[in-house]
Design a protein around this nucleic acid. Structure first.
Length: 803
DNA sequence: AGCACGCCGACT
DNA sequence: GTCGGCGTGCTC
């Protein structure tokens, strides 16, 4: 093959295509699709992904590939195709899709350096530049003092200096030096005699190797013999020792012990769920399973046993978990069962550690990856099963380009490898549950907890009642009593303040009425500027009322309280209680999260107070009370999924209480106790919630009945941004079917970002034959504007948060 | 993206 | 007549 088509490392509209390069003879047969190469591009050098080889090209002036960047392909055939599919279905650049599949450490760095050209006469160069070169090697363009820029440019023109473009990978492999003797012990003893008398250090080193003739880490040697490195160098020169560079992995779990566990006996219910999975595994067929099982029903054990079967057949497995740095227990369970076959990928690792875990997978040293969203791109060749745990978690959707959902990628890969995909959750997304109801996915249900412990009793407290009774505090009397009771018994409590988002809704403290949009079934957002209430979905806005439109009370105001204020109030009310507060402020430093949780686990505190982050994966035997301070904050966010998210959160947090011997209790404080999300969560009744919520989704044309697309337009000029958004809406009305609804334009929930004004419009559609084409044409239509006037268009297909 | 090319005003 | 400012368009 004479030519290679390359996707070049420039994420831009004009370069989002294939560039053909000639394959020089020296690389013939070496260059393969999926490899990264360094290619000349204009006057620079860039990396690019080879996507295909061919013998013909339409380009008259093809340049040759400069060099290889990887010795072997980093993307296999499947991942190359997956990248193309990703860029098509999420409307991102090809290069962006490819890069998303590799660890960030493998991104390339471009270094621009100045060096004297080969023909240059150094003595002709100006003094200041010459001295700069004498100090050492080429000068980096970035560090060049501004005083020298003009001179350097002049000398480049004169041909005395030239610019060198270098390409490097951000993260290097970690190498360590091993030293070992080249000679057998008796010859070493002989050498000892021949050394000069004053070479004490060298003698000492040789003696060391006589005693321990095995290879040793250079650093370990210098630990036992101070200053040995110079002596070692001399001995290597003499041919007595030799050194060897060995590549090592940075192992984040190096010092942790994982006692081995064996498969547990399955309950009848677990066996029944396991059967169809095993059947598909045996037939090597693809199928998506939705495993809907209450908290504690033993989903993980089913995952483990299915994986065991897959690994025994010599195949690989991917397990996605929401964010495992938060749940070390999860890693523990997999490592304990499968040992060193497990690679772990999550955001708590450094980029170097992620790189090393990736390479373990790439080299087939790991057969199972447990990781967050991006682990779905693990470079396996022979996948036997893919599992997505806590399927409903929003973190599976990437919010930057490529805006993919890990579930979609999992199903793509599952089809490719003809293997089962398991989605597991106690509170599945409506999308997945609806698909299971329709038979698109196979539903597996686990209704019983493994240890037969009952689900905790949930009390709903009406905070309006509290106010009427003169209690203006954040703590209801019920919660206060139960907290002091636990304190007396020496048991622990968890308090959750679910405060998400910055936008505040307006609520009447007297009757609990929340002011909503008459067109969207979404609460209105308070805007301090102009004292207005606005809908983030449609154009509706209204003035901030001074009295509640329902009951006429003056106790109407916007909501939003911080954990800090609650901690203060807690200290005032129960001064003897020891409180650990967990929020963004107290956990921003690395390791703090685990440290605080460990402290709580060691019973160094009575109450754990925190935001969302404490809802997941906590498992402490002495926690017998969970309090949700205000269930409403999330319920009234201007997001059609707020009911679903509230139900999920309440169900999840309820699962934190009474997991072991002691029975648990949950107190949910709310101003809207009658809301079905809260009522049904307290009854642990997902299925009724599902039916109720589906009715709402149907009548307001939301997913899963309709698909959504969110288009965000940004421009430094607010009027321009609004105008373009308006035009885009009209364009779409023209080109999409009558079935599609186009809402907006409205100001984006973050109306101004980085000095750019943002407007958005939303499309609701059922089926659109030419959807991708229409959206691509839309991009092209505004191309001129985009480059000329600094306009930016963002399209999110199936957005998760509209906030 | 980033770089060359090209056209304009300001200065030696 | 040259230097350097930024708008425009291309990169196999």
């Amino acid at each position: 093959m004479r030519y290679a088509s390359v996707v070049v490392d420039v994420p831009a509209k004009g370069t989002d295509k294939l560039f053909d390069y000639e394959i020089p003879n020296k690389f013939a047969g070496v260059i393969q699709p999926g490899m990264r190469v360094i290619v000349p591009f204009g006057s620079r050098k860039l990396t690019g992904f080879v996507v295909q080889l061919k013998n013909e090209t339409d380009i008259d002036s093809v340049k040759p590939i400069h060099s290889l960047f990887d010795p072997e392909p980093v993307l296999n055939h499947e991942l190359l195709e997956l990248g193309a599919w990703l860029s098509e279905t999420t409307l991102c650049y090809k290069i962006t899709a490819f890069q998303a599949m590799l660890p960030a450490a493998m991104k390339t760095r471009y270094i621009k350096e100045i060096k004297p050209s080969s023909s240059a006469q150094l003595e002709n160069l100006p003094e200041e530049i010459r001295t700069a070169f004498e100090k050492g090697g080429p000068l980096s363009w970035e560090d060049l003092p501004s005083s020298l820029v003009a001179v350097v440019q002049k000398e480049i023109r004169n041909g005395n200096l030239q610019i060198d473009y270098r390409v490097e990978q951000k993260q290097k492999k970690r190498l360590v030096k091993y030293v070992k003797p080249l000679l057998p012990v008796h010859e070493l003893e002989e050498q000892l005699q021949h050394l000069p008398a004053r070479a004490h250090k060298q003698k000492e080193v040789i003696q060391f190797f006589i005693d321990h003739p095995n290879p040793i880490l250079l650093t370990e040697l210098t630990n036992s013999i101070q200053g040995a490195s110079i002596a070692v160098k001399a001995l290597i020169k003499k041919g007595i020792l030799t050194e060897e560079q060995v590549e090592i992995y940075r192992d984040p779990y190096e010092h942790k012990q994982f006692p081995r566990t064996k498969p547990l006996p399955l309950t009848d219910e677990q066996k029944r769920a396991m059967e169809p999975i095993l059947d598909k595994l045996n037939r090597h067929e693809h199928e998506v399973f939705l495993m809907y099982g209450v908290t504690g029903s033993g989903k993980t054990e089913i995952y483990l046993q299915a994986i065991e079967k897959v690994l025994n057949e010599g195949k690989e497995a991917i397990v996605l978990v929401p964010e495992i740095s938060l749940t070390p227990q999860m890693v523990q369970r997999f490592k304990s069962r499968f040992g060193s076959q497990v690679a772990v990928l999550h955001s708590g690792l450094s980029s170097g550690e992620k790189f090393d875990e990736w390479r373990k997978i790439y080299r087939k040293e790991a057969k199972l990856v447990v990781g967050a969203r991006s682990a779905i791109f693990a470079p396996f060749q022979n996948i036997g099963i893919i599992i997505i745990d806590e399927e409903h978690e929003t973190s599976y959707k990437q919010e930057e380009s490529p805006r993919y959902h890990a579930r979609d990628v999992a199903i793509y890969r599952g089809k490719y490898h003809q293997c089962p995909v398991i989605l597991g959750s106690a509170t599945p997304t409506l999308e997945s549950f609806a698909r299971a109801q329709k038979g698109v996915y196979t539903l597996l249900t686990l209704k019983e907890r493994v240890n037969r412990r009952p689900l905790p009793e949930v009390h709903i407290v009406d905070m309006r009642e509290e106010l009427r009774n003169g209690n203006r505090s954040m703590f209801s009397r019920t919660l206060f009593e139960k907290l002091t009771d636990r304190l007396k018994k020496g048991e622990q409590s968890v308090l959750l303040l679910n405060k998400r988002g910055y936008s505040s809704f307006v609520m009447c403290r007297n009757c609990g009425h929340v002011i909503g949009c008459p067109h969207c079934d979404i609460s209105l957002t308070y805007h301090r500027h102009g004292e207005k209430l606005k809908c983030h979905y449609c154009q509706f806005e209204t003035a901030m009322p001074s009295r509640c439109p329902e009951c006429g009370s003056e106790h109407i105001r916007f909501f939003g309280t911080g954990t800090q204020r609650i901690e203060e109030e807690l200290n005032r009310l129960i001064p003897e209680a020891r409180v650990i507060r967990m929020d963004v402020d107290t956990t921003s430093r690395k390791g703090m999260h685990e440290k605080l949780l460990n402290a709580f686990g060691e019973k160094k505190a009575d109450i754990l107070l925190g935001t969302q982050m404490i809802a997941k994966g906590l498992d402490f035997p002495d926690v017998t009370l969970v309090g949700v301070l205000s269930a409403d904050t999330m319920l009234h966010l201007p997001d059609f999924r707020s009911g679903e998210k509230t139900f999920q959160l309440l169900t999840q947090v309820s699962g934190r209480a009474g997991r072991h011997e002691l029975p648990g209790e949950v107190v949910i404080q709310t101003y809207t106790p009658e809301h079905y999300s809260i009522q049904l969560a307290s009854l642990h009744d997902f299925e009724t919630f599902y039916r109720q919520e589906m009715k709402m989704r149907k009548s307001f044309a939301y997913p899963p009945y309709y698909f959504l697309i969110l288009i965000t337009v940004s421009h430094p000029n607010a009027i321009k941004a609004a105008e373009v958004t308006e035009k885009i809406g009209q364009y779409l009305k023209l080109h999409l079917s009558n079935e599609a609804q186009i809402l907006g334009p409205v100001s984006s929930p973050i109306p101004k970002m980085k000095d750019r004004y943002r407007f958005q419009c939303m499309i609701k559609y059922k089926r659109e034959k030419n959807l991708y084409r229409t959206l691509k044409l839309l991009f092209e239509h505004y191309e001129e504007d985009m480059s000329q006037t600094d306009l930016k268009l963002m399209i999110d297909l199936n957005p998760y948060t509209i906030l």
